[in-house]
Simulated assay, not measured.
Amino acid sequence: MEIYNFSKEAITSVEELREIVGVPHELIIKKSISFIDDHCKRFISMSPLLFLSTSNSEGKCIVSPRGDSQNLVKILNKQQLVIPDRSGNRRLDSMINILSNQYVGLIFIIPGLEGVLRINGRGTIIKDKEILNDMSLKGKSPFLGIGVDVEECFVHCPRALKESKIWSSETWQNPENLPSIMDMFHSHLKINGVELDE
């Protein structure tokens, strides 16, 4: 397999990028606010799913989905929110990243709504029981949470979700044709030399 050299036709400056794409309209720049207003609060309260983006001190990035039937996020005030850390695979990729680089990006999604809410800020891993006990799910409180000091909030245009028709069930694949997560999991283990008994 030939590896393509992306640097051959790479954009290397903001000036070159702007020359091709142009500049955003003033309204697009000014839609960003620095706190959680009532509109953002309502959006967050209706969102059962968010995507958390982090990177480590070397700039290596990950995006992690976080979802709950309830208590997905607790808003403490106009500048702070908390994401509970539910029991999972214990990889802790996002939290380990936050220990070396506090900057986080969040995307909140509401089923059926094509626009999304983006929030940027700084994350801190917390173990404050007073906060976390108030975020219990099925009778179990999280041991840890990610406290976010909010620096920027804005709605993102609906183009991606609209054009992908993600909420339109007639575009969904037949379940029998979907990738098997377990098959992928076992295959990737095998690539790394781990064989599981059938």
Rank of each mutant, 00 (worst) to 15 (best):
I98W: 02
L49D: 01
V82D: 03
P48F: 07
Q79T: 14
L72D: 01
I62Y: 03
G59M: 09
T54L: 01
D37W: 09
S47M: 07
F51V: 07
L92R: 07
N71C: 13
L76T: 08
S94H: 03
V73K: 01
N71I: 12
F35H: 14
S87Y: 15
I75M: 11
V82F: 10
L49P: 00
S55T: 02
D93C: 06
L72F: 07
D37M: 05
L52A: 02
H39G: 09
I36M: 05
K78R: 15
I75Y: 11
N77P: 05
E58A: 15
S55H: 05
N56I: 05
G88E: 03
L50D: 00
S69R: 15
H39Q: 15
I33T: 08
F43V: 01
R66I: 04
D85P: 02
P65I: 01
V63W: 11
M95S: 07
S64R: 02
R66T: 00
L72M: 09
I83L: 10
Q80V: 08
I44V: 10
L76G: 09
L81V: 04
S53N: 06
N89W: 13
N97F: 04
Q79L: 15
I33L: 11
S57T: 06
R86M: 05
I62T: 11
P84S: 10
N89S: 10
V73C: 06
S45N: 10
F35K: 12
L99I: 12
T54Q: 03
L81D: 01
V73E: 01
M46L: 15
L52W: 02
L49I: 12
S64L: 11
N89E: 12
L92V: 08
N89D: 10
S55L: 07
K74N: 10
K78G: 08
E58Y: 13
R66Y: 04
K74P: 05
G67E: 04
P84W: 03
D37Y: 10
T54K: 00
R86T: 01
F51H: 06
I83Q: 03
